[in-house]
Design a protein around this nucleic acid. Sequence first.
DNA 1: TCTTGTTAGATTGTCGGCAATCTGCTTGTC
DNA 2: GACAAGCAGATTGCCGACAATCTAACAAGA
Lengths: 245, 245
Amino acid sequence: MGKADFSPIADTTRRAEIVALLRRAILTGQLEPGQKLNELRISEQMRVSRAPLREAMRELVQEGILTSIPYAGTFVIDVTAKDIDDAYSFNKVMDEFAIEQTWPLRDQRFFDELDRRHETVKQATRALDTTRQIETALQLHGLIYEWADNSVLLDTWQRLTSRLQMYFALHQHARNEPVPAEDVHETYVQLLKGKDMLAAQRHAREHIGLDFEELIAYARSLEQRTSKGGRADRASPARSGPGGS
Amino acid sequence: MGKADFSPIADTTRRAEIVALLRRAILTGQLEPGQKLNELRISEQMRVSRAPLREAMRELVQEGILTSIPYAGTFVIDVTAKDIDDAYSFNKVMDEFAIEQTWPLRDQRFFDELDRRHETVKQATRALDTTRQIETALQLHGLIYEWADNSVLLDTWQRLTSRLQMYFALHQHARNEPVPAEDVHETYVQLLKGKDMLAAQRHAREHIGLDFEELIAYARSLEQRTSKGGRADRASPARSGPGGS
DNA sequence: TCTTGTTAGATTGTCGGCAATCTGCTTGTC
DNA sequence: GACAAGCAGATTGCCGACAATCTAACAAGA
Protein backbone atom coordinates (compact mmCIF):
# COMPACT_ATOMS: atom_id res chain seq x y z
CA MET A 1 0.00 0.00 0.00
CA GLY A 2 1.50 3.34 -1.03
CA LYS A 3 2.00 5.58 1.92
CA ALA A 4 2.62 9.21 1.07
CA ASP A 5 2.24 12.07 3.53
CA PHE A 6 0.28 14.75 1.79
CA SER A 7 -0.17 18.08 3.48
CA PRO A 8 -3.63 19.61 3.24
CA ILE A 9 -4.03 21.78 0.17
CA ALA A 10 -4.25 25.51 0.56
CA ASP A 11 -7.50 27.16 1.59
CA THR A 12 -9.03 28.47 -1.57
CA THR A 13 -11.56 30.89 -0.25
CA ARG A 14 -11.34 34.57 -0.91
CA ARG A 15 -11.74 35.13 2.80
CA ALA A 16 -8.53 33.29 3.61
CA GLU A 17 -6.56 35.23 1.02
CA ILE A 18 -7.94 38.51 2.25
CA VAL A 19 -6.92 37.61 5.80
CA ALA A 20 -3.40 36.91 4.60
CA LEU A 21 -3.21 40.12 2.62
CA LEU A 22 -4.50 42.30 5.42
CA ARG A 23 -2.31 40.63 8.02
CA ARG A 24 0.75 41.13 5.89
CA ALA A 25 -0.15 44.78 5.32
CA ILE A 26 -0.52 45.34 9.05
CA LEU A 27 2.54 43.41 10.16
CA THR A 28 4.78 45.10 7.63
CA GLY A 29 3.53 48.52 8.63
CA GLN A 30 1.80 49.35 5.35
CA LEU A 31 -1.21 49.95 7.53
CA GLU A 32 -0.25 52.12 10.47
CA PRO A 33 -1.53 51.72 14.03
CA GLY A 34 -4.78 53.56 14.61
CA GLN A 35 -5.55 53.75 10.92
CA LYS A 36 -9.11 53.11 9.84
CA LEU A 37 -9.93 50.43 7.31
CA ASN A 38 -12.54 51.66 4.85
CA GLU A 39 -14.50 48.62 3.72
CA LEU A 40 -15.71 50.00 0.42
CA ARG A 41 -12.30 51.28 -0.62
CA ILE A 42 -10.46 48.08 0.27
CA SER A 43 -13.08 45.83 -1.30
CA GLU A 44 -12.81 47.78 -4.54
CA GLN A 45 -9.03 47.65 -4.50
CA MET A 46 -9.08 43.90 -3.96
CA ARG A 47 -11.90 43.41 -6.47
CA VAL A 48 -13.92 41.59 -3.86
CA SER A 49 -17.30 42.18 -2.32
CA ARG A 50 -17.59 43.44 1.22
CA ALA A 51 -18.92 40.18 2.67
CA PRO A 52 -15.70 38.14 2.64
CA LEU A 53 -13.72 41.26 3.53
CA ARG A 54 -15.84 41.85 6.59
CA GLU A 55 -15.52 38.21 7.65
CA ALA A 56 -11.77 38.47 7.27
CA MET A 57 -11.76 41.58 9.40
CA ARG A 58 -13.67 39.82 12.19
CA GLU A 59 -10.99 37.15 12.25
CA LEU A 60 -8.23 39.71 12.57
CA VAL A 61 -10.14 41.48 15.31
CA GLN A 62 -10.21 38.26 17.32
CA GLU A 63 -6.56 37.74 16.45
CA GLY A 64 -5.88 40.97 18.26
CA ILE A 65 -4.38 43.19 15.57
CA LEU A 66 -7.58 44.97 14.60
CA THR A 67 -10.20 46.56 16.80
CA SER A 68 -13.78 47.20 15.84
CA ILE A 69 -16.23 49.83 17.03
CA PRO A 70 -19.83 49.26 15.89
CA TYR A 71 -21.02 51.75 13.30
CA ALA A 72 -17.73 53.61 13.54
CA GLY A 73 -15.26 51.35 11.82
CA THR A 74 -12.45 48.86 12.16
CA PHE A 75 -8.99 50.11 13.05
CA VAL A 76 -5.47 48.82 13.32
CA ILE A 77 -4.73 48.50 17.03
CA ASP A 78 -2.91 51.28 18.75
CA VAL A 79 0.43 50.28 20.18
CA THR A 80 1.14 51.63 23.62
CA ALA A 81 4.35 51.18 25.55
CA LYS A 82 2.37 49.30 28.16
CA ASP A 83 1.13 46.82 25.58
CA ILE A 84 4.69 46.05 24.61
CA ASP A 85 5.72 45.83 28.22
CA ASP A 86 2.86 43.43 28.94
CA ALA A 87 3.80 41.27 25.98
CA TYR A 88 7.40 41.34 27.12
CA SER A 89 6.82 40.12 30.66
CA PHE A 90 4.28 37.57 29.52
CA ASN A 91 6.65 36.31 26.87
CA LYS A 92 9.35 35.72 29.44
CA VAL A 93 7.12 33.32 31.35
CA MET A 94 5.99 31.59 28.19
CA ASP A 95 9.54 31.14 26.99
CA GLU A 96 10.54 29.51 30.20
CA PHE A 97 7.62 27.11 29.96
CA ALA A 98 8.15 26.37 26.28
CA ILE A 99 11.81 25.51 26.78
CA GLU A 100 10.95 23.31 29.74
CA GLN A 101 8.35 21.43 27.72
CA THR A 102 10.45 21.15 24.60
CA TRP A 103 13.66 20.14 26.36
CA PRO A 104 13.04 16.39 26.73
CA LEU A 105 11.53 16.22 23.24
CA ARG A 106 14.58 17.51 21.40
CA ASP A 107 15.99 15.14 18.81
CA GLN A 108 17.98 15.26 15.60
CA ARG A 109 15.03 16.58 13.63
CA PHE A 110 14.72 19.41 16.13
CA PHE A 111 18.36 20.36 15.78
CA ASP A 112 18.14 20.22 12.00
CA GLU A 113 15.10 22.42 11.91
CA LEU A 114 16.77 24.78 14.36
CA ASP A 115 19.76 25.12 12.05
CA ARG A 116 17.55 25.52 9.03
CA ARG A 117 15.64 28.41 10.54
CA HIS A 118 18.81 29.96 11.84
CA GLU A 119 20.19 29.84 8.34
CA THR A 120 17.04 31.50 7.00
CA VAL A 121 17.49 34.37 9.41
CA LYS A 122 21.11 34.84 8.37
CA GLN A 123 20.01 34.79 4.77
CA ALA A 124 17.46 37.56 5.33
CA THR A 125 20.09 39.49 7.26
CA ARG A 126 22.55 39.29 4.39
CA ALA A 127 19.82 40.36 1.96
CA LEU A 128 19.22 43.45 4.13
CA ASP A 129 15.50 42.59 4.17
CA THR A 130 14.55 43.88 7.60
CA THR A 131 10.91 42.87 7.35
CA ARG A 132 11.76 39.31 6.48
CA GLN A 133 14.47 39.33 9.09
CA ILE A 134 11.93 40.03 11.80
CA GLU A 135 9.63 37.38 10.43
CA THR A 136 12.28 34.70 10.26
CA ALA A 137 13.73 35.56 13.65
CA LEU A 138 10.29 35.06 15.18
CA GLN A 139 9.97 31.77 13.33
CA LEU A 140 13.31 30.67 14.72
CA HIS A 141 12.19 31.61 18.15
CA GLY A 142 8.84 29.91 17.60
CA LEU A 143 10.35 26.50 17.12
CA ILE A 144 10.39 25.78 20.82
CA TYR A 145 6.66 26.50 20.86
CA GLU A 146 5.91 24.26 17.93
CA TRP A 147 8.00 21.49 19.42
CA ALA A 148 6.55 21.71 22.91
CA ASP A 149 3.55 19.66 21.81
CA ASN A 150 1.03 21.78 23.65
CA SER A 151 -1.78 23.13 21.49
CA VAL A 152 -2.78 25.87 23.91
CA LEU A 153 0.78 27.08 24.25
CA LEU A 154 1.26 27.12 20.49
CA ASP A 155 -2.01 28.94 19.96
CA THR A 156 -1.06 31.59 22.46
CA TRP A 157 2.34 32.02 20.89
CA GLN A 158 0.90 32.46 17.43
CA ARG A 159 -1.42 35.15 18.70
CA LEU A 160 1.43 36.89 20.44
CA THR A 161 3.63 36.58 17.37
CA SER A 162 1.33 38.76 15.31
CA ARG A 163 1.62 41.56 17.78
CA LEU A 164 5.34 41.14 18.31
CA GLN A 165 6.01 41.23 14.60
CA MET A 166 3.95 44.39 14.36
CA TYR A 167 5.85 46.01 17.21
CA PHE A 168 9.26 45.20 15.85
CA ALA A 169 8.32 46.18 12.32
CA LEU A 170 7.10 49.48 13.65
CA HIS A 171 10.37 49.99 15.40
CA GLN A 172 12.41 49.16 12.35
CA HIS A 173 10.34 51.42 10.18
CA ALA A 174 10.96 54.37 12.45
CA ARG A 175 14.67 54.21 12.99
CA ASN A 176 15.65 52.99 9.58
CA GLU A 177 18.83 51.26 10.63
CA PRO A 178 20.54 49.22 7.94
CA VAL A 179 20.40 45.94 9.85
CA PRO A 180 21.27 44.80 13.36
CA ALA A 181 24.56 43.20 14.30
CA GLU A 182 25.76 40.13 12.50
CA ASP A 183 24.44 37.14 14.41
CA VAL A 184 22.63 37.63 17.68
CA HIS A 185 21.02 34.19 17.58
CA GLU A 186 24.17 32.09 17.58
CA THR A 187 24.34 31.72 21.35
CA TYR A 188 20.63 30.98 21.59
CA VAL A 189 20.86 28.16 19.07
CA GLN A 190 23.93 26.70 20.73
CA LEU A 191 22.30 26.73 24.15
CA LEU A 192 19.23 24.96 22.82
CA LYS A 193 21.51 22.25 21.54
CA GLY A 194 23.36 21.96 24.84
CA LYS A 195 22.71 20.22 28.12
CA ASP A 196 22.00 23.12 30.47
CA MET A 197 18.30 23.90 30.36
CA LEU A 198 18.44 26.62 32.96
CA ALA A 199 21.15 28.41 31.00
CA ALA A 200 18.99 28.28 27.89
CA GLN A 201 16.05 29.71 29.76
CA ARG A 202 18.15 32.45 31.26
CA HIS A 203 19.61 33.42 27.93
CA ALA A 204 16.21 33.45 26.24
CA ARG A 205 14.99 35.89 28.87
CA GLU A 206 17.94 38.22 28.58
CA HIS A 207 18.35 38.02 24.83
CA ILE A 208 14.74 38.80 24.12
CA GLY A 209 14.91 41.33 26.89
CA LEU A 210 17.46 43.48 25.17
CA ASP A 211 15.47 43.76 21.99
CA PHE A 212 12.43 44.66 24.00
CA GLU A 213 14.10 47.33 26.09
CA GLU A 214 14.99 49.30 23.01
CA LEU A 215 11.51 48.79 21.62
CA ILE A 216 9.77 49.98 24.77
CA ALA A 217 11.97 53.04 24.99
CA TYR A 218 11.00 53.90 21.44
CA ALA A 219 7.30 53.40 22.14
CA ARG A 220 7.57 55.62 25.21
CA SER A 221 9.13 58.40 23.18
CA LEU A 222 6.33 58.04 20.66
CA GLU A 223 3.71 58.48 23.35
CA GLN A 224 5.39 61.62 24.57
CA ARG A 225 4.76 63.08 21.16
CA THR A 226 1.21 61.88 20.63
CA SER A 227 0.02 62.70 24.13
CA LYS A 228 -0.21 66.31 23.12
CA GLY A 229 -0.45 65.64 19.42
CA GLY A 230 -4.08 64.71 18.97
CA ARG A 231 -5.51 61.40 17.95
CA ALA A 232 -5.19 59.86 21.38
CA ASP A 233 -8.93 59.49 21.97
CA ARG A 234 -11.02 56.64 20.60
CA ALA A 235 -9.92 54.20 23.26
CA SER A 236 -10.08 50.51 22.49
CA PRO A 237 -13.54 49.21 23.34
CA ALA A 238 -14.07 46.61 26.03
CA ARG A 239 -13.53 43.24 24.43
CA SER A 240 -16.80 41.41 24.77
CA GLY A 241 -15.37 38.59 26.83
CA PRO A 242 -16.80 35.16 27.46
CA GLY A 243 -17.99 36.17 30.89
CA GLY A 244 -21.28 37.72 29.85
CA SER A 245 -24.21 38.13 32.20
CA MET B 1 -18.97 70.56 36.69
CA GLY B 2 -20.83 67.27 37.03
CA LYS B 3 -18.46 64.37 36.86
CA ALA B 4 -20.11 61.01 36.30
CA ASP B 5 -18.24 57.97 35.06
CA PHE B 6 -20.32 56.40 32.35
CA SER B 7 -19.37 53.03 31.04
CA PRO B 8 -19.67 52.53 27.29
CA ILE B 9 -23.13 51.38 26.29
CA ALA B 10 -23.73 47.84 25.15
CA ASP B 11 -22.96 46.72 21.61
CA THR B 12 -26.22 46.79 19.73
CA THR B 13 -25.40 44.89 16.61
CA ARG B 14 -27.08 41.63 15.74
CA ARG B 15 -23.63 40.15 15.28
CA ALA B 16 -22.67 40.75 18.89
CA GLU B 17 -25.89 39.19 20.16
CA ILE B 18 -25.45 36.19 17.91
CA VAL B 19 -21.94 35.70 19.23
CA ALA B 20 -23.26 35.76 22.78
CA LEU B 21 -26.06 33.34 21.97
CA LEU B 22 -23.83 30.86 20.17
CA ARG B 23 -21.12 31.03 22.80
CA ARG B 24 -23.63 30.37 25.52
CA ALA B 25 -25.08 27.43 23.60
CA ILE B 26 -21.64 25.93 23.17
CA LEU B 27 -20.36 26.53 26.68
CA THR B 28 -23.48 25.12 28.28
CA GLY B 29 -23.33 22.05 26.12
CA GLN B 30 -26.51 22.70 24.15
CA LEU B 31 -24.27 22.33 21.14
CA GLU B 32 -22.16 19.22 21.48
CA PRO B 33 -18.52 18.88 20.45
CA GLY B 34 -18.12 17.90 16.83
CA GLN B 35 -21.62 19.04 15.95
CA LYS B 36 -22.09 20.91 12.70
CA LEU B 37 -23.68 24.34 12.66
CA ASN B 38 -26.09 24.67 9.75
CA GLU B 39 -26.12 28.31 8.75
CA LEU B 40 -29.53 28.36 7.12
CA ARG B 41 -31.23 26.55 9.98
CA ILE B 42 -29.69 28.73 12.69
CA SER B 43 -30.29 31.96 10.82
CA GLU B 44 -33.96 31.06 10.43
CA GLN B 45 -34.29 30.12 14.08
CA MET B 46 -32.73 33.42 15.14
CA ARG B 47 -34.72 35.38 12.53
CA VAL B 48 -31.50 36.82 11.18
CA SER B 49 -29.81 36.76 7.82
CA ARG B 50 -26.75 34.65 7.24
CA ALA B 51 -24.33 37.57 6.95
CA PRO B 52 -24.13 38.56 10.64
CA LEU B 53 -24.36 34.89 11.62
CA ARG B 54 -21.36 34.02 9.50
CA GLU B 55 -19.38 36.95 10.89
CA ALA B 56 -20.23 35.81 14.40
CA MET B 57 -19.03 32.33 13.53
CA ARG B 58 -15.69 33.66 12.29
CA GLU B 59 -15.19 35.34 15.63
CA LEU B 60 -15.89 32.14 17.52
CA VAL B 61 -13.56 30.24 15.24
CA GLN B 62 -10.75 32.60 16.17
CA GLU B 63 -11.82 32.33 19.78
CA GLY B 64 -11.04 28.67 19.56
CA ILE B 65 -14.39 27.02 20.27
CA LEU B 66 -15.46 26.54 16.66
CA THR B 67 -13.52 25.14 13.75
CA SER B 68 -14.24 25.81 10.10
CA ILE B 69 -13.57 23.71 7.02
CA PRO B 70 -14.08 25.55 3.71
CA TYR B 71 -17.13 24.39 1.76
CA ALA B 72 -17.78 21.73 4.40
CA GLY B 73 -19.06 23.62 7.40
CA THR B 74 -18.34 25.02 10.81
CA PHE B 75 -18.21 22.66 13.78
CA VAL B 76 -17.97 22.82 17.52
CA ILE B 77 -14.42 21.83 18.40
CA ASP B 78 -13.73 18.27 19.40
CA VAL B 79 -12.44 17.90 22.91
CA THR B 80 -9.59 15.46 23.30
CA ALA B 81 -7.97 14.44 26.56
CA LYS B 82 -4.75 15.96 25.29
CA ASP B 83 -6.42 19.32 24.76
CA ILE B 84 -7.53 19.34 28.36
CA ASP B 85 -4.12 18.21 29.51
CA ASP B 86 -2.47 20.98 27.50
CA ALA B 87 -4.80 23.57 28.94
CA TYR B 88 -4.13 22.17 32.39
CA SER B 89 -0.36 22.42 32.30
CA PHE B 90 -0.48 25.79 30.60
CA ASN B 91 -2.93 27.07 33.16
CA LYS B 92 -0.59 26.13 35.98
CA VAL B 93 2.12 28.39 34.61
CA MET B 94 -0.32 31.20 33.94
CA ASP B 95 -1.75 30.99 37.43
CA GLU B 96 1.66 31.28 38.96
CA PHE B 97 2.41 34.35 36.86
CA ALA B 98 -0.99 35.95 37.47
CA ILE B 99 -0.68 35.61 41.23
CA GLU B 100 2.83 37.00 41.13
CA GLN B 101 1.71 40.02 39.15
CA THR B 102 -1.42 40.61 41.15
CA TRP B 103 0.17 40.15 44.56
CA PRO B 104 1.60 43.66 45.06
CA LEU B 105 -1.52 45.24 43.56
CA ARG B 106 -3.98 43.77 46.04
CA ASP B 107 -5.95 46.33 48.00
CA GLN B 108 -9.27 46.60 49.78
CA ARG B 109 -11.20 46.76 46.53
CA PHE B 110 -9.53 43.53 45.46
CA PHE B 111 -10.53 41.78 48.67
CA ASP B 112 -14.08 43.09 48.41
CA GLU B 113 -14.40 41.89 44.83
CA LEU B 114 -12.91 38.57 45.81
CA ASP B 115 -15.54 38.12 48.52
CA ARG B 116 -18.30 39.24 46.19
CA ARG B 117 -17.41 36.65 43.58
CA HIS B 118 -16.94 34.00 46.19
CA GLU B 119 -20.41 34.76 47.45
CA THR B 120 -21.78 34.47 43.92
CA VAL B 121 -20.30 31.01 43.59
CA LYS B 122 -21.83 29.91 46.88
CA GLN B 123 -25.14 31.29 45.74
CA ALA B 124 -25.06 29.28 42.52
CA THR B 125 -24.03 26.23 44.53
CA ARG B 126 -27.00 26.59 46.87
CA ALA B 127 -29.30 27.03 43.87
CA LEU B 128 -27.99 23.74 42.44
CA ASP B 129 -27.31 25.52 39.15
CA THR B 130 -24.26 23.61 37.96
CA THR B 131 -23.82 25.60 34.76
CA ARG B 132 -23.81 28.88 36.59
CA GLN B 133 -21.61 27.36 39.26
CA ILE B 134 -18.92 26.62 36.69
CA GLU B 135 -19.26 30.08 35.21
CA THR B 136 -19.01 31.86 38.54
CA ALA B 137 -16.15 29.70 39.75
CA LEU B 138 -14.18 30.65 36.66
CA GLN B 139 -15.01 34.29 37.27
CA LEU B 140 -13.77 33.99 40.82
CA HIS B 141 -10.60 32.44 39.58
CA GLY B 142 -10.32 35.05 36.84
CA LEU B 143 -10.02 37.93 39.27
CA ILE B 144 -6.28 37.49 39.61
CA TYR B 145 -6.02 37.82 35.86
CA GLU B 146 -8.15 40.93 35.70
CA TRP B 147 -6.20 42.47 38.55
CA ALA B 148 -2.76 41.65 37.21
CA ASP B 149 -2.91 44.67 34.88
CA ASN B 150 -1.44 42.87 31.91
CA SER B 151 -3.56 43.02 28.78
CA VAL B 152 -1.88 40.08 27.09
CA LEU B 153 -2.29 37.90 30.16
CA LEU B 154 -5.94 38.83 30.50
CA ASP B 155 -6.59 38.20 26.82
CA THR B 156 -5.01 34.78 27.03
CA TRP B 157 -7.01 33.93 30.12
CA GLN B 158 -10.29 34.93 28.51
CA ARG B 159 -9.55 32.73 25.55
CA LEU B 160 -8.67 29.84 27.80
CA THR B 161 -11.76 30.42 29.91
CA SER B 162 -14.05 29.64 27.02
CA ARG B 163 -12.49 26.26 26.55
CA LEU B 164 -12.27 25.50 30.25
CA GLN B 165 -15.92 26.31 30.75
CA MET B 166 -16.78 24.05 27.86
CA TYR B 167 -14.71 21.22 29.27
CA PHE B 168 -16.16 21.43 32.73
CA ALA B 169 -19.70 21.82 31.46
CA LEU B 170 -19.19 18.74 29.36
CA HIS B 171 -18.01 16.86 32.38
CA GLN B 172 -20.91 17.98 34.51
CA HIS B 173 -23.39 17.08 31.81
CA ALA B 174 -22.08 13.55 31.60
CA ARG B 175 -21.94 12.54 35.23
CA ASN B 176 -24.98 14.38 36.43
CA GLU B 177 -23.85 14.81 39.99
CA PRO B 178 -26.04 17.03 42.12
CA VAL B 179 -23.31 19.50 43.02
CA PRO B 180 -19.74 19.26 44.29
CA ALA B 181 -18.80 19.58 47.93
CA GLU B 182 -19.81 22.62 49.89
CA ASP B 183 -17.02 25.14 49.56
CA VAL B 184 -13.81 24.23 47.80
CA HIS B 185 -12.82 27.84 47.25
CA GLU B 186 -12.62 28.92 50.89
CA THR B 187 -8.93 28.11 51.25
CA TYR B 188 -8.09 29.73 47.92
CA VAL B 189 -9.76 32.98 48.90
CA GLN B 190 -8.12 33.01 52.30
CA LEU B 191 -4.66 32.43 50.83
CA LEU B 192 -5.14 35.28 48.37
CA LYS B 193 -5.88 37.52 51.31
CA GLY B 194 -2.85 36.32 53.25
CA LYS B 195 0.83 37.13 53.21
CA ASP B 196 2.37 33.98 51.77
CA MET B 197 2.44 34.29 48.00
CA LEU B 198 4.18 30.98 47.41
CA ALA B 199 1.54 29.19 49.43
CA ALA B 200 -1.17 30.79 47.33
CA GLN B 201 0.56 29.74 44.14
CA ARG B 202 1.03 26.21 45.40
CA HIS B 203 -2.58 25.89 46.41
CA ALA B 204 -3.84 27.28 43.10
CA ARG B 205 -1.86 24.63 41.30
CA GLU B 206 -3.08 21.77 43.43
CA HIS B 207 -6.65 22.91 43.79
CA ILE B 208 -7.14 23.41 40.09
CA GLY B 209 -5.18 20.25 39.56
CA LEU B 210 -7.65 18.06 41.35
CA ASP B 211 -10.56 19.28 39.28
CA PHE B 212 -8.57 18.69 36.16
CA GLU B 213 -7.47 15.19 37.04
CA GLU B 214 -11.04 14.03 37.23
CA LEU B 215 -11.86 15.84 34.02
CA ILE B 216 -8.99 14.31 32.09
CA ALA B 217 -9.85 10.84 33.29
CA TYR B 218 -13.37 11.34 32.03
CA ALA B 219 -12.16 12.59 28.66
CA ARG B 220 -9.85 9.61 28.33
CA SER B 221 -12.72 7.23 28.97
CA LEU B 222 -14.74 9.04 26.32
CA GLU B 223 -12.01 8.57 23.77
CA GLN B 224 -11.85 4.88 24.51
CA ARG B 225 -15.46 4.68 23.40
CA THR B 226 -15.27 6.89 20.34
CA SER B 227 -12.02 5.45 19.05
CA LYS B 228 -13.97 2.47 17.79
CA GLY B 229 -17.31 4.26 17.69
CA GLY B 230 -17.10 6.18 14.46
CA ARG B 231 -17.08 9.94 14.04
CA ALA B 232 -13.42 10.29 14.93
CA ASP B 233 -12.34 11.43 11.50
CA ARG B 234 -12.62 15.02 10.24
CA ALA B 235 -9.57 16.15 12.15
CA SER B 236 -9.26 19.80 13.06
CA PRO B 237 -7.68 21.67 10.15
CA ALA B 238 -4.37 23.43 10.54
CA ARG B 239 -5.05 26.84 11.98
CA SER B 240 -3.87 29.32 9.35
CA GLY B 241 -1.26 30.90 11.55
CA PRO B 242 0.36 34.29 11.13
CA GLY B 243 3.57 32.80 9.80
CA GLY B 244 2.40 32.02 6.29
CA SER B 245 4.80 33.19 3.63
C1' DT C 1 -20.48 83.28 21.49
C1' DC C 2 -22.16 79.19 22.87
C1' DT C 3 -25.48 75.75 22.60
C1' DT C 4 -29.00 73.09 20.27
C1' DG C 5 -31.63 71.25 16.32
C1' DT C 6 -31.43 69.91 11.48
C1' DT C 7 -29.82 67.99 7.41
C1' DA C 8 -26.82 65.87 3.85
C1' DG C 9 -23.20 62.80 3.04
C1' DA C 10 -20.56 58.90 3.98
C1' DT C 11 -19.94 54.41 6.14
C1' DT C 12 -21.26 50.39 8.51
C1' DG C 13 -24.81 46.66 9.31
C1' DT C 14 -28.03 43.63 7.20
C1' DC C 15 -30.72 41.32 3.68
C1' DG C 16 -32.16 38.19 -0.18
C1' DG C 17 -30.44 35.83 -4.11
C1' DC C 18 -27.04 33.69 -7.15
C1' DA C 19 -22.74 30.97 -8.01
C1' DA C 20 -19.37 27.46 -6.53
C1' DT C 21 -18.59 23.35 -4.18
C1' DC C 22 -19.47 19.09 -1.76
C1' DT C 23 -22.17 14.70 -0.86
C1' DG C 24 -24.83 10.85 -1.80
C1' DC C 25 -27.47 8.39 -4.95
C1' DT C 26 -28.53 6.62 -9.36
C1' DT C 27 -27.31 4.82 -13.70
C1' DG C 28 -24.83 2.39 -16.95
C1' DT C 29 -21.16 -0.72 -18.16
C1' DC C 30 -18.07 -4.55 -17.57
C1' DG D 1 -21.78 -7.67 -8.12
C1' DA D 2 -18.07 -4.01 -8.61
C1' DC D 3 -16.89 0.25 -10.20
C1' DA D 4 -16.76 4.72 -12.68
C1' DA D 5 -19.53 8.56 -14.58
C1' DG D 6 -23.07 11.55 -14.03
C1' DC D 7 -26.85 13.84 -11.80
C1' DA D 8 -29.75 16.05 -8.13
C1' DG D 9 -30.04 17.98 -3.60
C1' DA D 10 -28.18 20.51 -0.01
C1' DT D 11 -24.90 23.77 1.85
C1' DT D 12 -21.35 27.10 1.85
C1' DG D 13 -19.15 31.26 -0.42
C1' DC D 14 -19.96 35.49 -2.56
C1' DC D 15 -22.34 39.47 -4.58
C1' DG D 16 -25.17 43.76 -5.16
C1' DA D 17 -28.51 46.64 -2.97
C1' DC D 18 -31.04 48.56 0.92
C1' DA D 19 -31.57 50.08 5.82
C1' DA D 20 -29.58 51.90 10.13
C1' DT D 21 -26.31 54.71 12.15
C1' DC D 22 -22.67 58.02 12.64
C1' DT D 23 -20.24 62.47 11.46
C1' DA D 24 -19.73 67.01 10.20
C1' DA D 25 -21.42 71.16 8.48
C1' DC D 26 -24.85 74.55 8.87
C1' DA D 27 -28.70 77.29 10.73
C1' DA D 28 -31.47 79.11 14.59
C1' DG D 29 -32.10 80.68 19.06
C1' DA D 30 -30.70 82.14 23.87
